[in-house]
């Protein structure tokens, strides 16, 4: 015991932190490259339903989103609590869908315009009436590839 203690008073050398910035920068660049900025802020309540047979959407750049649901609590005073459609950053109506489809198509490469998937992010509590109307509007402008956004779950409950 004493054998070890005699050498004692030597203090531990400080851990060299010179490489810390490098490590952090590496992580930083990783996140900078992989990040996709949130494009829209949600103005509607949006809890997507659960399903077992979901598949992943392949190309993020070829997906356009349509949100449907009740306005969030903070906006219910101004917009009421009936389900609404949100396109990009604003509340819209059915009549704005053709223009929205046109704009989204214009944003894409000419070759890919017909490959856009229209992802419907609909709140679980919404009734089908408004969803059917949106679907019909999309049909009219030949936007046929739909995705009903859903979360993966293993078991279905009744």
């Amino acid at each position: 015991m004493g054998k070890f203690r005699k050498k004692g008073s030597r203090s531990l050398p400080a851990v060299n932190t010179a490489s810390l910035p490098d490590i952090v920068f590496m992580l930083l660049f990783f996140f900078m490259v992989t990040t996709v900025m949130r494009e829209t802020s949600l103005k509607v309540e949006n809890t997507t339903p659960k399903a077992t047979e979901v598949s992943k959407l392949e190309k993020k750049s070829l997906v356009a989103y349509i949100y449907i649901g009740k306005p969030i609590k903070a906006l219910q005073g101004a917009f009421g609590s009936a389900p609404r459609i949100q396109l990009n950053d604003a509340f819209k109506t059915i009549d704005d869908i053709p223009l929205f489809v046109e704009m989204e198509k214009d944003d894409r490469d000419e070759k890919e315009r017909n490959k856009i998937t229209w992802s419907l992010k609909v709140d679980v509590k919404t009734k089908m009436g408004i969803v059917t109307e949106v679907k019909q509007a999309l049909r009219q402008v030949n936007a046929l590839k739909l995705n009903y956004s859903a979360n993966k779950t293993e078991v279905m409950t009744n």
């Binding site: 930083l28 996140f31 900078m32 992989t34 990040t35 996709v36 900025m37 949130r38 997507t48 399903a51 047979e53 979901v54 598949s55 992943k56 959407l57 993020k60 997906v63 989103y65 998937t117 992802s119 679907k135 999309l138 049909r139 009219q140 030949n142 046929l144 590839k145 739909l146 995705n147 009903y148 956004s149 859903a150 979360n151 993966k152």
Partner: peptide
């Protein structure tokens, strides 16, 4: 960047509407 990043890809049931 950690906070603003969204890693989740969209998932769902893919369907095709009939043409008019």
């Amino acid at each position: 960047f950690l906070v603003t990043t969204t890693m989740d890809t969209d998932k769902g049931l893919i369907r095709k509407l009939p043409e008019i």
